[in-house]
Simulated scan of single mutants.
Amino acid sequence: MRRPKLLHVPFWATIVFLYLPIAVLVAMSFNAGESAYTFEGFSLKWYGELLADERVISGLVNTLIVAVSSTAIATVLGTLLAVGLARYTRSKILDAVALMPAVLPDLVLGIGLLMLFITLNQTLGHHSVILAHAVFSTAFVAAVVRTRLTGADTSLEEASRDLGAGPVTTFVKVTLPQLTPGIIAGALLAFTLSLDEFVIAFFTIGNADPTLPIVIYSMIRFGVTPEINALASILLLVSFTAVIAGQRLTKIGESRAQD
């Protein structure tokens, strides 16, 4: 049956609404002029300006430190959490509590973590941002790995235990290899989320050198420039690449599981 062409109108209208502002931002990052709103010719000079901007480079280094560290913590904790929820508990309440940081507003989570650090008399800095990012990233990793566990072949784990392997050996040699695509996808998602997270970092960083999103916020307070457009375009490319890689790894894992 042929679908009416009018049904395509809402779809393409939604696509344009979502992606047209992003396309304009990327296009204006190649603007030769000083204005962020009037295109005066093609140029790559603003990408060169980024390399010479010490604030941007310092913020990028801080962001990478936070993102890599929090991703490592979240990947380990999220994987263990997913296995525990899928294999050793059958509680919807625990499922909801474990995944709650993923749906809580960033503002609420940021204020709550700030109050926790102050109550514990902990100084704020990059270490507090790493722990804060690990909190919400763990929930996302757990959700991705939990999805992978749903399609995993439990008969291999049962066979391993029947042959005398202990829980740890079974997990390392049987369960973990099956979960590897999901773990990598979850880690990429956690890294992407940490890379451009602003609100939680703003509340928990204290007087330490700012991360890149905070640097961008301080820059746009005085107006948007083509340099900011160029920086946003690079972050967009990194995020897009990580998301696509995560999706591909998930599909590869599903295909192998079906085979």
Rank of each mutant, 00 (worst) to 15 (best):
T241M: 11
S43F: 06
V224W: 08
P101D: 06
T241K: 08
F39M: 12
R221A: 08
H126Q: 15
G125F: 04
L193T: 04
L124D: 01
T169Q: 09
G125Y: 02
P210H: 03
L64D: 00
T147S: 14
V66F: 00
G166R: 09
G125M: 08
Q258R: 15
A134R: 01
I65Y: 04
L188A: 09
I111L: 14
P101L: 03
V16D: 10
F11M: 14
L114Y: 07
L44E: 14
A134G: 07
V135L: 07
S160N: 11
L189N: 04
K45C: 11
S239F: 02
F222H: 13
G33N: 11
V56R: 02
I200V: 15
T192G: 08
A52V: 10
R2C: 05
A96K: 12
E197N: 03
L189V: 08
K92A: 10
L235Y: 03
E49T: 09
F136Q: 04
R87S: 08
G59R: 00
F136D: 03
Q247F: 07
T71P: 02
I65M: 09
A134C: 10
L25I: 14
E197G: 02
A187M: 09
A242D: 00
S218R: 11
L113T: 01
G110A: 14
K45L: 13
L236F: 12
E49F: 07
P4K: 10
T14V: 12
A86L: 05
A159N: 11
M219D: 04
T154Y: 14
I184D: 03
S35H: 04
V144W: 02
P210Y: 01
A143P: 00
E254L: 13
G84W: 09
Y217L: 01
L114V: 08
T38S: 12
G246M: 04
A152M: 15
F17C: 14
L236R: 00
S70N: 04
T192E: 06
L99D: 06
I73V: 09
G33D: 07
R148N: 13
A36H: 07
L179Q: 06
V76F: 04
V145A: 08
L176R: 15
M1G: 15
V215E: 01
T241V: 12
L236N: 03
V199A: 14
Y88G: 13
I183C: 05
A134L: 03
V135M: 06
L188G: 03
V16T: 12
Q247M: 13
R148E: 15
L212H: 04
T169V: 11
T147D: 11
V199R: 07
M115R: 12
R161C: 10
R256W: 11
A187T: 05
S194F: 00
V238Q: 04
T119F: 13
L188F: 12
I22W: 00
